[in-house]
Design a protein around this nucleic acid. Structure first.
Lengths: 210, 210
DNA sequence: CCAGACTTGTGGACACTGTCCACATGGTTA
DNA sequence: TAACCATGTGGACAGTGTCCACAAGTCTGG
């Protein structure tokens, strides 16, 4: 009797819900344990479905992981957007432009420190890293590019120094995030870490206005 | 008959050979597949010993992995030492000091690109990252500190800017290495990658002489 | 409107992994 | 020489990714 009820209930899942559920479950696992914690069977258990069901939506575990990685990367981009959005001052104001660059950098590093598992997961599977994601949203690199363009508009960064400036800055911020989030500097005291962040952002500022 | 021969052969291993063999095997696995590829059973197979034998030398797989990570980190430090050692010019010569800093940075990034598996493994288990390793050898951070100290001695880096300068620079180099070695910039063409490296090292130089 | 095709979930199986236990065996020491 | 200790063995177990055959809904063309 209960069997029939549950059996019929089995099909009541909205279309695509299992796939989304698996990604959400994978994100939760990644949050606490990083990419290695994204175990297919555990994710299916969380969704309430048998392990093999996952294979109707992903070719294998790697494909599930890739979807989780993409989601983690979107989360990082979203936090950068939020950080930049909180800075007031209109486009072209030199001070505001500087604060916006710093805000996206801070968001990046803060994400790595507060969510080391998700941060590691975001970079676990190398994705195409264009300025914009397929859905039209800005990627982290896109946010950086926009911030640098604004610094040029504001007259803070000279045009002839603009080209390629994304990469040294991305390197600095990404390296700081890695070292502090999961790397050797993971366990330094909070005050020390803040000093490292301060030093690094000051270094970037120096490099920009050279 | 053959049994007895092999049985007696079993004990012919030099003392500590199994442990060292396991680390060496783990290093080989890490070289091709990163930290996840360090699988205990495969390492024991390579050494020619039964899986459980590993538990006489390591509490569990994590402890084996930690040993492999430490070895990978020493390998990175060794390459930095080699790179610095190739630069001629005596201590205190400004040009030589700059070249030495660049040489250790280049060695760091080159290691990440040529041996992405080992690079990832070196940073997979966060170790104490002092200036010197327990065996007295310089760590990567130790090399960086020495290079910066020399820049001060050479008069390139002003003393009052010296303190804490390790961290922005380490961040820049480590970030570049991560992005180029295993991260989103892993597959950019060689020429592009070299340009990113050039830009980043120039950026660091600017920040130093600010 | 209904038979077949397609989609999606199930059940059972396999090889592989890390790890535990009891046991054997050789070298060392009291 | 007898007891001990370090080290390797053999067998077992749970957990994992993945494959195959099957079932039960859903959609579609005649």
């Amino acid at each position: 009797m209960g069997v029939t009820a549950e059996e019929t209930e089995r099909r009541r899942r909205p279309r695509g819900a299992v796939r989304e559920g698996l990604v959400a479950a994978g994100l939760e696992l990644a949050r606490t344990g990083g990419p290695d914690a994204v175990v297919l069977r555990e994710a299916t258990r969380m969704v309430g479905v048998v392990p093999n069901a996952a294979y109707r939506h992903f070719a294998d575990r790697d494909e599930l992981l890739a979807a989780v990685c993409a989601a983690a990367m979107r989360e990082l981009a979203a936090r950068m957007a939020t950080g930049a959005g909180r800075v007031r001052g209109k486009h072209g104001d030199p001070a505001a432009a500087g604060r916006r660059l710093r805000a996206i950098g801070t968001a990046y590093v803060t994400f790595a420190r507060e969510e080391p598992g998700l941060f590691a997961t975001a970079f676990a599977v190398p994705q195409q890293h264009a300025y914009d994601a397929p859905d039209g949203e800005r990627t982290p690199l896109g946010h950086l590019r926009a911030a640098l363009d604004e610094l040029v508009d504001a007259g803070v960064l000279r045009q002839e120094r603009r080209e390629g400036m994304e990469y040294p800055i991305w390197s600095s911020v990404h390296g700081l995030a890695s070292l502090v989030g999961q790397g050797p500097l993971r366990d330094v005291p909070d005050a020390t870490r803040r000093r490292f962040e301060e030093l690094t952002f000051a270094f970037i500022g120096d490099g920009l206005t050279h």
